Amino acid sequence: MNAYLTSLSAIVKREALRFVHQRERFIAALVRPLVWLLVFAAGFRAALGLSIIPPYQTYITYETYIVPGLCGMVLLFNGMQSSLSLVYDREMGSMKLLLTSPLPRWWLLFCKLIGSTAISVLQVYAFLGIAAAFGITMPLIGYVTVLPALVVAGVMLGALGLLLSSFIKQLENFSGVMNFVIFPTFFLSSALYPLWKMAESSELLYKICAINPFTQAVELIRFALYANFNGTALFWSLSAAVIFTFVAVWGYNPARTGLAKRG
């Protein structure tokens, strides 16, 4: 048990130090959602009318609506950024040392996932703090009840990043794959507009958005910010996290990737 805890502490600490030394990563993680919140929302406010939908009890501004989606954006981009570091580690050889340790590789990848999720959650709270400074606030209890939702969503999206990194062999190929995954995942969701709006324009797009795991993560965060429980979103988010993690662990099998043979 001491070996497991030591590895968890070491990997999480390594992730934290890497994040601290990459200040531009923290700034970029906040700039993206703030641009949407303060710039794009001003233009979309008039174009996208919002009805009263759960968990909201009254009409809300468009800026208020997209805050949970932008929290999901922070988690999504950080999950992809963390997976990029895995591809880099594999090219540099440190991934080989990690996966050939006596501890199970599922535990080592889980530690990596916990570290990246903790950083993601801190970034989300920083974003919520800046949004509150601009007058876009949530119920006070929501800042507490959203924590478990952020952890679940962060683990799911971090596991998606792990899955992608297990199949990407070269660092140069990562940006293309990342964009191919991030933008459809983000835009085909309820992050920027409610699903009933999508249903008005295309039934097919509505169905795609509804089954998108990112949509479930966003709705889980949205309800949690108002101290409401969304069991459906929690179930599908956890299910996606388990599936992504299982496939990622299989993808990092040294016998399959040849990591054990490289020296």
Rank of each mutant, 00 (worst) to 15 (best):
R90T: 01
F77V: 15
F223G: 14
E91L: 03
M198R: 00
L38Q: 05
A133S: 13
K112M: 06
W106M: 02
T61A: 07
V67I: 15
N78I: 13
P55Y: 03
V144H: 05
N212L: 06
K169E: 14
F127Q: 01
Y4L: 06
T245M: 15
Q123G: 06
Y252D: 02
Y143D: 03
C209L: 04
S120I: 00
I11Y: 08
L259G: 05
I211L: 09
V87N: 05
N212G: 06
W36S: 04
A126G: 02
R256D: 02
W196L: 04
G129A: 05
F174Y: 12
A227K: 03
L99G: 03
E15P: 00
K207P: 13
G79R: 02
L84Y: 15
M138D: 00
W36N: 03
V35E: 00
S239V: 13
V249N: 06
A227P: 13
M178N: 10
R25G: 13
Y193P: 00
Y193D: 01
L113E: 06
A46F: 01
A199K: 15
Y4H: 10
F26L: 12
L70P: 12
F134L: 07
R18C: 04
V121T: 10
V67E: 00
P104A: 09
F44E: 06
F187T: 04
T137N: 04
T185E: 13
V20C: 07
L38N: 02
V12I: 15
Y252H: 10
A233P: 09
Q216E: 07
L140S: 12
L75C: 08
F127D: 00
T185S: 14
S166H: 08
R14I: 12
G43E: 09
A3C: 01
T145I: 04
Y62E: 11
L8H: 11
A260S: 12
A132P: 11
F19D: 10
L150C: 11
F26A: 09
F77E: 04
Y226K: 00
L70D: 01
K112I: 05
G43V: 02
L109K: 08
A241P: 01
E219T: 14
L37Y: 04
R90D: 06
N173K: 11
L157K: 02
F186A: 05
A118R: 03
R25W: 04
E24R: 08
S116F: 00
R262T: 11
G129I: 00
A126I: 04
W107V: 07
S82E: 03
V121E: 07
T64N: 09
H21K: 10
G158H: 01
S201H: 10
T215M: 09
N179G: 13
A191I: 07
L30H: 09
Q123H: 08
K207M: 02
G69S: 08
R18V: 06
Y62C: 10
Q123M: 09
F229Y: 15
L38I: 08
V39I: 12
R25D: 14
T58V: 08
G251C: 05
V155A: 15
L238I: 02
V146T: 11
A199S: 15
K197A: 14
L70G: 06
F127R: 10
Y226P: 03
I119R: 04
V218F: 15
N228P: 03
